[in-house]
Amino acid sequence: MTDGHFRQISFTINDRERRLRVDIRKSLAEVLREDLGLIGLKQGCGVGECGACSVMVDDVLVDSCIYLALWADGKQIRTVEGEARDGKPSKVQQAYVDEGAVQCGFCTPGFIMATTSFVEKCKGKNVSPGDIRKAHAGNLCRCTGYQNIFTAIEKSIESD
């Protein structure tokens, strides 16, 4: 690869500053997985259909497979790896465990980030079942029929 394919960027990833030389053709998902070893996010389609690669960029939920790594320059990124602190899962993570919302687990990291983003946005607001469903409609799950995920989201809102 020629040098023309690379550029220096910096961003905050799970509260840590990183400077990185990235291949400008790479998606954020690819850079996070391949260059930083953050393999929690998954790729189920590569074109923004399934949501398994969901991460937060400046508190906005994005499909990192269709978000160029370059665009993350100067931004704050949160991935599933940053959610458990001091050996304890986040409230959202705990709710997914307790409600049986996890089966194969491949969509789970994306869902955890979608719910985390949703819960933070809805703080102090009344949330309807329709709001919950709409906010998670970009994340596909083939195992659970979304039923226990729904209760995990409800519980995440209550416990927040």
Binding site: L38, L41, E81, P89, Y96, V102, G105, P109, I112
Partner: peptide, 8 residues
């Protein structure tokens, strides 16, 4: 395996 899966 739930905790391994929710933590990525």
């Amino acid at each position: 395996d739930a905790m391994a899966k929710v933590t990525g």
